[in-house]
Design a protein around this nucleic acid. Sequence first.
DNA 1: AAGTGGTCTAGACCACCAT
DNA 2: TGGTGGTCTAGACCACTTC
Lengths: 215, 215
Amino acid sequence: MPTEAELRREYGVSRHTIRQAFQDLVAEGLVYRVPGRGTFVTDLSRRGRYLRSIGTLEELMAWTGTEIEVLHAPATRMDAKAAGRLGLPSDEVSVLDVRRLYEGVPFVVTRIYLAIEVGDRLKDEALPLLEGSETVLGTLERLVLPFPIAGVSQDITAAFAPPELSTLIDCQPGEPILYVERIYFDTANNPVELAISHYNPRRYSYHLELRRKLP
Amino acid sequence: MPTEAELRREYGVSRHTIRQAFQDLVAEGLVYRVPGRGTFVTDLSRRGRYLRSIGTLEELMAWTGTEIEVLHAPATRMDAKAAGRLGLPSDEVSVLDVRRLYEGVPFVVTRIYLAIEVGDRLKDEALPLLEGSETVLGTLERLVLPFPIAGVSQDITAAFAPPELSTLIDCQPGEPILYVERIYFDTANNPVELAISHYNPRRYSYHLELRRKLP
DNA sequence: AAGTGGTCTAGACCACCAT
DNA sequence: TGGTGGTCTAGACCACTTC
């Protein structure tokens, strides 16, 4: 790739600006830099082999190429554990169930817990917009939430397929499934959404790339 | 937290240096910054609940608080698939098996594939150093490898516990286990290590925190 | 010896938040 | 209105690679 000096001359900006742009590219894993040698684009042959790679929050929230199906619209329920994890004052939470499909084939069911007011606004204003390739959280962030999403905390483990869910993702009861719990936080550090997912491991594997922060 | 101006006065360094230090802290998720308001430490109540959280490569390579046990020292085998994934010219790879314990209790077995010359040097020079809390890759990086590790590509899924491994992590054959494949790359973008792990899901869950890149 | 990226200082303007 | 972090310019020295 061009050197910092070349880009400085070409665009008439300071070296600091060039370096900052390169830092972003390195953080995204698109290029890597070697002191004394130069900047090189990452080998692309190792990318694009998976349904999805989620090394950043942006990737996690952009499920391109899949469709979402709402199994149950948001409804109020009592769930002390979920309410506690969302930091809610009472035991009431809003719950909805969704299923995600790739090329028409389902591979994950997710139960989503929200604060009552968030779930109600989702149901009243945004539910028709949910069908399609959006994510629930992306819709919420655009239409409902006061602060943008800043982070997510995930727990990934294996479990037996629950009988009541197994048919929804074409698993046999007792088969191993990939179990994922996620809590999303906004910039004010408040928990916004609790999502509990069951993945069919024959149709989905969780792919993740991590890189060292700075070159 | 102190403002940039305060730290500049206190330590007599430029603002750029202060900002760079803060950027590292933000990338590690230890603090967050709000324009116009200041810098704040992340709520620690949500950390430390898990055996380990691995949102960065550094965390993945530092298994603090656990011990490693070498089940089989590196030995040469033929494995076309593993050799191919490591980009090796022949089908010969060096294979070792390790088990990891937390407070004396095993929770994961890992088979590690290396290039022949790397495996041989590990066996000859560094094997005694492996016992203890180190990681294999950390040892390799310090003693054997020409380039530092720059990234990792992971695949996580669920599977039945293989009969020959289940007793090593106190699982029953046929129980669900967490299956993880990792390939580590160095700064020259060459694959260095292929690691295939089987986790006991009752003793370990893969915890992962992701944050938006820049505040 | 020339060129590369890594690091640092000094200084400026801006949008935003607090009061 | 003053302080915060976000962004930018200009310039310097360094270790390392390449020729």
